[in-house]
């Protein structure tokens, strides 16, 4: 009986097992091995020399790599809170009993999520552009020289966050489903105890949806560390203004392709992988302290 169930089990998960082997296990091992070689994969002569840990040592001594890592970390510190709390706030408002036609607004707030991100970039670039509506508004308030958002190292990160804001739809949906799962009796009980809006948010809503926050946090960390597409589309990954958009993944990609240094690119990819993995493990470690699972065991 158990053996038959096990057979069924393996049968059902077999598509994923095949995918794991073909698209993860082999490529990962291949790229890990690549980090120990000096490999030129292009050109007439394809050399392939074992160089031990040279690539890894080079990473520790590469100022550009560390600079790029710094860029990524700084951006993450800005985009991660936005990516977690803005959709949460929106979901809370959309979940409010006082809102008329909540269904319509839910649809509207998810809608931009289906718009291709390139279109989102072009759209938001228009809004924050030199003569766009935002700067016109700023000038109405008496500011003489309205800023050039994408050309100012101090403003480029808010601009990038804005360009990605249309992507919050999925997080809103996940939050909404989490909020829908909070039992109404809890609110009624709280009301009996005289709790106001803030108290029920603080003591019921937030604790009850910590699993969803945790879920978005984990995805957010991985996503921001691998941030790549928006700067790549925005300026071809040239790092401007003043190197502020030279994200780690951009530098990695450039090393891989543009500088034709696949083994060093693979090393950087592994560095990023290890950082992501480490951070995720730490976050999973803190989970017990603040994430509340209603069902007890997950």
């Amino acid at each position: 009986m158990e053996r038959r169930e096990a057979q069924w089990g393996f049968l059902f998960i077999s598509p994923w097992i095949i995918g794991l082997a073909v698209f993860y296990a082999f490529p990962i091992v291949a790229s890990l091995l690549l980090t120990f070689f000096d490999a030129s994969l292009t050109g007439a002569e394809r050399n392939f020399t074992f160089i031990g840990l040279d690539n890894w040592i080079r990473f520790f001594n590469d100022p550009m790599a560390w600079k790029a890592l710094g860029v990524t970390v700084r951006f993450t510190l800005l985009t991660l809170p936005v990516g977690i709390f803005v959709p949460l706030a929106v979901a809370l408002v959309l979940n409010s009993k006082a809102l008329v036609a909540p269904g319509l607004f839910r649809v509207l707030w998810f809608l931009p999520y289906v718009i291709p991100f390139v279109a989102g970039i072009i759209g938001w670039l228009g809004v924050i552009g030199q003569n766009g509506p935002l700067n016109t508004l700023i000038e109405l308030f008496g500011v003489q020289d309205a800023p050039l958002w994408t050309n100012d190292p101090g403003l480029i990160y808010p601009a990038l966050v804005l360009m990605g804001i249309w992507g919050i739809g999925s997080a809103i949906v996940v939050y909404l489903s989490g909020l829908g799962g909070v039992p109404t009796e809890l609110y009624e009980a709280a009301m009996v105890d005289g709790a106001g809006w803030w108290a029920s948010l603080r003591h019921i809503t937030l604790p009850m949806i910590t699993p969803v926050i945790f879920y978005n946090l984990i995805l957010g960390v991985a996503g921001s560390l691998q941030y790549f597409l928006v700067p790549q589309v925005l300026n071809g990954g040239n790092g401007n203004p003043e190197g502020s958009t030279l994200f780690f993944n951009i530098y990695l990609f450039k090393s891989f392709f543009t500088y034709q240094d696949p083994s060093y690119g693979a090393t950087l990819a592994w560095v990023l992988f290890l950082i992501t993995l480490g951070l995720s493990l730490i976050l999973f470690g803190t989970q017990k302290r603040w994430v509340y699972y209603a069902g007890g065991d997950r």
């Binding site: 089990g9 993860y24 991985a222 990819a269 592994w270 992988f273």
Partner: peptide, 26 residues
């Protein structure tokens, strides 16, 4: 369905979410 190594495999699966695509690209 119960099968040997289910928990481990599930963990492996979740872990793959965090693998940067660039690692496997070439």
């Amino acid at each position: 369905l119960k099968f040997p190594g289910r928990g481990k495999l599930f963990q492996v699966m979740v872990a793959t979410i965090f693998i940067p695509g660039t690692v496997t690209l070439i």
